[in-house]
């Protein structure tokens, strides 16, 4: 690897009482990677992701995201990452422009800068005609693209995507992944969770969490070879079936 990893996690743990949600996980993510973060329900994905986003303190272990310490510099991390999930998205009762302006303001961009980036964004997404439409009236696929573009408006080095494509039609899902590819090609690092195992194949590398630990880590092709599986779905099922936790 030619440069410092953008995400660097060492022996990171999170315990709630006597329950260990995340159990000493260690991994690096390089700049420009699309990193798939997989795991069954209750394997500890969400807890781990919250720690990386500076929303939750680790019980032990350490980590840095974009050069900031996750335990001490949570506020700085929040300013330097993008975050998008199915739930946290755009305000339906604001127009496209109003949403963009709002998020630009939240991330402290200047008025001029917001205007400039808004114009570029509308151009790229071909949304100019819809800029005064309320987001609630847009088709789901459009909303998603807009949501991603808004999450990356402040040009974050890392973007966390929490199940960004749930329930979306196959065409829109692919268009969305092309946005992700495009962002990665421009040097942004993407950290993605998904329930679609075919999407795991799109990632540069994936990790699979079972019972709070990272049980497998590598490029999809490597993992398939290692486990003698045809698809990532098979790999995932082989590993997840060993889970002892029932939540």
């Amino acid at each position: 690897m030619e440069s410092e990893p953008i995400i660097r996690v060492r022996e990171l743990s999170k315990r709630f009482g006597d329950f260990t949600a995340v159990d000493r996980i260690t991994f690096d993510v390089a700049r420009g990677e699309i990193f798939g973060f997989l795991g069954a329900n209750g394997a500890g994905k969400t807890t781990a992701m919250r720690m990386l986003c500076g929303l939750s303190y680790p019980t032990s272990g350490s980590g840095t995201v974009a050069g900031f310490d996750i335990a001490r510099e949570g506020e700085l991390i929040k300013r330097h990452i993008g975050y998008m999930s199915q739930r946290f998205s755009l305000y339906d009762d604001l127009t496209v422009m109003e949403n963009i302006r709002l998020y630009g303001g939240i991330y402290g961009l200047s008025r001029r800068e917001i205007l400039r980036r808004t114009a570029a964004l509308l151009e790229r997404l071909d949304f100019r005609a819809e800029r005064h439409t309320r987001v609630g009236r847009l088709p789901l696929g459009w909303k998603q693209k807009l949501s991603f573009s808004v999450a990356t408006l402040h040009r974050p080095q890392v973007v966390f995507l929490d199940e960004p494509t749930g329930g979306v039609d196959p065409v829109t899902r692919r268009q969305f992944w092309e946005l992700i590819y495009e962002a990665a090609a421009e040097g942004t690092t993407l950290f993605v969770t998904t329930h679609y195992m075919d999407e795991a194949e799109y990632c540069s590398r994936v990790s699979i969490m079972v019972d709070g630990q990272i049980r497998a880590l590598g490029a999809p092709a490597e993992l398939k070879r290692h486990y003698g599986a045809r698809t990532m779905d098979e790999v995932f099922r082989m590993l997840a079936r060993e889970a002892k936790r029932t939540e």
Binding site: N41, G166, G167, H195, M197, D233, F236, R237, A240, A243
Partner: peptide
């Protein structure tokens, strides 16, 4: 099966 992991879905 929405929102349920691959193992449970299977």
């Amino acid at each position: 099966t929405t929102g349920v992991d691959a193992v449970s879905r299977n």
